[in-house]
Simulated scan of single mutants.
Amino acid sequence: MNAGGKNDKILDTIGSLVAEERSLRDRSTRNLGLGDEDQERLRAVEVQLDQCWDLLRQRRAKSEFGENPDEAAVRPPSEVEGYQG
């Protein structure tokens, strides 16, 4: 798969995660909060989103500077949480 195809796949994953995040947040608003399981899932979705955005940024930067974007790797949550780009 070429770099663009992999980037598209990451963007598709981001889109799915954003949709799930919206659904959970809407449910939270309707129900005046979320149960423990949904709260955990929302947190997991937020972490996955941070990781996906970070991976996409890494791939784009490597491409821009003539490096192999396939060398980009998912970083642990502790490195990407709260990333301010």
Rank of each mutant, 00 (worst) to 15 (best):
P77E: 04
D50H: 14
G85P: 13
V18T: 07
G66L: 06
L24T: 00
G33V: 00
K6C: 01
Q48W: 06
V18Q: 10
K6V: 09
D26F: 05
R75N: 11
L17N: 06
D50L: 08
P77A: 10
S78P: 09
L17P: 08
Q48S: 05
Q84A: 13
E71Y: 09
N31P: 13
E40S: 14
N31R: 15
R59E: 02
E67I: 00
V45D: 04
L49K: 08
L42H: 06
R27I: 06
S23E: 05
Q84S: 11
V74Q: 07
C52P: 15
E20G: 14
G66Q: 12
A44C: 13
R43H: 01
A3N: 11
L24C: 00
G4I: 03
R60Q: 02
A44L: 07
D38I: 01
S78W: 11
D54C: 07
G15C: 08
C52G: 13
D54L: 09
R57H: 01
Q51P: 12
E40L: 12
R60W: 02
K9H: 10
E46Y: 11
L42Y: 07
S28N: 02
R60L: 01
W53V: 05
A72G: 15
R25F: 01
Y83R: 08
L34A: 03
V18S: 12
E71V: 03
E20M: 13
V47T: 13
E21W: 14
Y83L: 01
G35N: 09
L32Y: 04
C52V: 07
D70V: 05
L55S: 12
L56K: 09
L32G: 00
F65R: 15
L32C: 01
K62P: 05
L34P: 01
L24W: 02
G66C: 13
D54E: 06
W53E: 02
N7T: 03
R22E: 00
R41I: 00
M1L: 04
Q39E: 11
P77K: 08
D12K: 15
D54F: 05
A73E: 06
E37A: 10
N68A: 06
L24E: 00
L42R: 10
N7Y: 05
D50S: 11
E79C: 01
E46K: 06
T13F: 04
S16Q: 07
Q58D: 12
F65H: 14
T29E: 03
S23W: 13
A61P: 15
D8N: 04
A72F: 15
P69A: 14
K9N: 12
